[in-house]
């Protein structure tokens, strides 16, 4: 019984978040105080750390409020509403490919890296018509380069 109760507390998303934000508030407070007092003769009214201290106080108070929301949720037996299934693999793949795109742009430049990125994502998201993938990837990358880079004078990565 006690074990289940403990599990309820640990599994409650509001309580998890409350702990995280309380730690963030504490870290922000420590960072601000240490930096303020390590600067010679700095008055609080001019200190760059006055506002972060105020934010830390607010976040600390809000983490307690979130914690009490979680407690109330457990006591009332209210379960977090079920969300639709998350396609984690697709999300992680998209993030991974985007990071790779970010990395390869430095070496391959805009057009080749964009074509590679689009092909990878189109294929992963389920487009199977290779001719369509090829046409859209190349046409889109080149036309973006012409419209933004040449006509609108927007710098491209």
């Amino acid at each position: 019984m006690e074990e289940n109760r403990k599990k309820d507390y640990l599994r409650n998303s509001n309580i998890q978040d409350a702990v995280l934000f309380f730690m963030l508030a504490a870290a922000l407070m420590v960072y601000s105080l240490v930096n303020h007092y390590s600067t010679d003769k700095l008055e609080w009214k001019l200190s760059p750390y006055l506002f972060p201290v105020l934010i830390a106080v607010f976040i600390g108070a809000l983490s307690f409020s979130l914690f009490s929301d979680g407690i109330r949720q457990i006591k009332s037996g209210e379960k977090s509403r079920k969300k639709a299934a998350i396609h984690w693999k697709d999300v992680l793949f998209t993030i991974g490919v985007s990071v790779a795109y970010f990395g390869t742009m430095r070496f391959l430049k805009f057009i080749p890296s964009t074509i590679l990125f689009l092909v990878a994502l189109f294929l992963h998201l389920g487009e199977r018509r290779i001719w369509l993938i090829a046409i859209i990837s190349v046409l889109f990358s080149v036309s973006i380069y012409i419209i933004f880079g040449v006509m609108l004078h927007v710098m491209l990565p």
């Binding site: 795109y101 689009l118 998201l125 889109f140 927007v154 491209l156």
Partner: peptide
């Protein structure tokens, strides 16, 4: 499946164009 990759590329361009910094991307 066609729209989302294109939007991502537009996001990259939008983030870069303001200061021309890869850091912003």
């Amino acid at each position: 499946r066609i729209l989302l990759p294109i939007v991502t590329v537009l996001c990259v361009i939008g983030a870069f164009a303001c200061n021309n910094r890869m850091f912003d991307v």
